[in-house]
């Protein structure tokens, strides 16, 4: 007898997996969010240490980057998973009193994910800081601004525009990277799928359902980031700005001027 297609693959099962998987999305997002905070904080420290070439910290940061980039993330995760408790136990043997068993597993995971991602985020931030024109900083100094003011009003806003696409990528990378955390026993969506599939051996459907969920999350995030980037970005053509009136609302533009904008012609009428 011929086996039917649904013996090998059934959309119905993919669909039926969804509710149980979706339940664990908060864990995935929590893990990614915490890891992002770590990566942003550590990445910023490393970026500033290298941007300002701070003694001792600069070579340390460089060594850290080399190690983190030169080893697989899965290995780093295991090193953190076994290494952090080991270090704490050493502290305990010196007289500290930390109950290692009370530390939730998610802590090791987000520290390790965050450190891994910080290696990449730091380079994004450093490149963005260095992209700010030195002349602008001098001009601000010449006006009588202090370094703090220049940082706040000139360097950070300009660097942010350049850093945003890279930071967005790192968030998406982190969301996908959380699937590795299933290997240290955190029940997020990937681990949840393994549990569910272990009951009926429908692994393929489970992984397909999982892929769909990761993809949907990523697409939503990309949409959000694009909207944010659009708000912070300097418009490409002058016509885009002249289309805005003083209240910041877009005025209706004529068909001809739209065509001109699209083809990059400069519309003098728009200025008036």
């Amino acid at each position: 007898m011929l086996a039917s297609f649904s013996d090998y693959f059934s959309f119905k099962i993919v669909w039926s997996r969804m509710p149980d998987l979706i339940k664990k999305i908060p864990i995935t997002l929590e893990l990614a969010g915490l890891a992002f905070v770590v990566s942003l904080f550590v990445g910023l420290l490393i970026a500033v240490a290298r941007y300002k070439k701070i003694k001792v910290l600069d070579p340390l940061a460089t060594a850290f980057l080399s190690i983190v980039r030169g080893t697989p993330m899965l290995i780093q995760l295991y090193v953190a998973y076994y290494g952090i408790p080991a270090i704490l136990r050493i502290f305990n043997s010196w007289g500290a009193d930390i109950n290692v068993n009370l530390i939730p597993k998610i802590v090791y995971a987000f520290i390790s994910l965050g450190l891994y991602q910080s290696a990449f985020t730091s380079e994004t931030i450093r490149a963005a800081l260095e992209s700010v024109d030195n002349g602008e900083i001098e001009a601000a100094y010449a006006m009588g601004m202090t370094y703090g003011q220049i940082l706040k009003r000139i360097i950070i806003p300009e660097a942010l525009e350049n850093a945003l696409p890279g930071i967005d990528n790192s968030i998406i990378g982190l969301v996908k990277g959380t699937s590795l955390a299933s290997t240290c026993g955190i029940i997020e969506i990937t681990y949840q799928n393994q549990i569910l599939a272990g009951r009926d051996y429908r692994y393929l459907e489970g992984y397909v359902a999982l892929a769909i969920i990761y993809w949907v999350i990523t697409v939503i995030l990309e949409r959000v980031f694009k909207a944010v980037e659009k708000r912070t970005k300097i418009p490409e053509s002058p016509a885009e700005i002249s289309g805005k009136n003083s209240s910041g609302l877009k005025e209706k533009t004529s068909f001809i001027s739209k065509v001109r904008q699209r083809h990059g012609y400069f519309d003098h009428k728009e200025l008036a």
């Binding site: 001009a139 601000a140 300009e158 300097i234």
Partner: peptide
Amino acid sequence: TELRRHTGMVFQRFCLFEHKT
């Protein structure tokens, strides 16, 4: 800083803040 507040400078390369109108 005080001295700079009393002086103004125009640069060869303009040095306007790129992200501001």
